[in-house]
Computed example of a mutant assay.
Amino acid sequence: MAPDRRLMARDGARPSYDPAGPDRALRAALQDLRTGRWMAMRTLLADTADRWQWTQRTQVLAAAAAGSDVVRAWLAEEPDSAHALVMHARVAVERALRAQRERHLRTHELWIEAWDAAQAATRAAPHDAVPWVCLVALAQLDPEQRWEEHRAVAPEPLLPPGPWGLLAEAHKRDPFNREAHHRMLQFLYARRGTGRLAEAAGYAQWAAGQAPAGSALHVLPLYVRVERYRRESGHDAALDLHWVAEEAAREARRALHSWFEHTHRGERSLLDLNHVAHALWGSLQFPDAARVFDAIGPYVTPTPWMYRAPGRDRAVEVFLQARDRCRAARS
């Protein structure tokens, strides 16, 4: 049986959404966390050596822990634990961002609590980029850029002022940190004034241009393109035209050749894989898209597929149609 046929058989008929993706250790820690226990999380983080995996795991764990007091319980038991303090900051930031999305009355209060927690984490874990990523994430709660640290001069004249100093601190500790740059994009989307998508597109191109081969920053322009469609499109035909443009096809090829082909399965973000597969399929580069679908395996992320057809179930249907079309073209 050919390699792609084996992968197709293992994928199953219908992919599933799992925030842990193929990370089995993370999945086990999440299951433990959801029952109110924190020891598996503690052990997992103690065993996490790679910086990219540390950032990803703390982010996923925080999203799961934000609705409970499990991290607070850990911190109460081990108040001097740097890992517990970083997770406390992660959870506080997640809560503040959710409050902002839901227009909660306590948003400002939660923002200040999260800022204090992130500052404490920078002192407890001085070599960790995650507390600085947390501070970059909080910048989107200041769209008018009233805080001085959110209106620093950009390193490139054509880029707008923003939390560049915070981003630089994250970069010192983990160069080209994927999440730090995605948080910067979110800040640019939220920033007051005109031309926000144009600024975000310019930023994504600049960041990708600075990044070495294998960096996930080469996928950033695809996220901006999806965001533009989400805001401006009205029907499926518009999306098809949006992706077959030469610039879109070029961005998809760049992500494939500069990122996908220089990385292995374990270090790729599932969300990045879905965005690259979507872009290659949308720009009619079916055989290349099939390679990325094989790497995705039995998992799917709601975005960007849900912008073709709102709702998680319909998004999966679009994913399956795209995967089948690309694999058929390869065969």
Rank of each mutant, 00 (worst) to 15 (best):
R314S: 13
H108P: 01
A237G: 14
R308I: 04
D174N: 15
D324E: 13
A200P: 06
P175T: 12
A213F: 12
H235Y: 11
V224R: 00
A13R: 10
E227P: 02
A76S: 15
R183G: 01
W74G: 07
N177E: 09
F293I: 03
W115M: 12
T301W: 05
A139P: 03
Q140V: 00
H275A: 05
P310M: 10
C326L: 09
Q210G: 03
A82G: 14
A121N: 00
A129T: 04
A9G: 09
M1F: 14
V136A: 09
T122W: 09
L26G: 05
T122S: 10
M8A: 15
E267K: 06
D288H: 09
R191E: 03
H181M: 01
V244I: 15
A245I: 04
C326H: 08
V70H: 11
H257L: 00
E261P: 01
A213C: 13
A84Y: 00
Q145M: 13
W132N: 10
Q56T: 10
R312I: 08
A118W: 08
L197Q: 14
A117P: 01
A76D: 13
P304L: 06
H218A: 02
A99W: 11
S283N: 07
W38F: 15
T48P: 00
T107D: 00
R37C: 10
A154S: 15
R312P: 06
G165Q: 07
A124C: 00
W164L: 05
H235N: 14
W206K: 01
P131V: 12
P15H: 12
V71E: 00
W206M: 07
D142C: 09
P298A: 04
A65T: 07
A20T: 01
D11M: 13
V224Y: 03
H127V: 03
R146Q: 15
S269P: 02
K172F: 09
A290T: 05
E113G: 14
Q119Y: 09
G165P: 00
P143W: 08
D240A: 12
L280R: 05
Y17A: 13
L185T: 02
D32L: 03
H171M: 14
G202Q: 12
P143L: 09
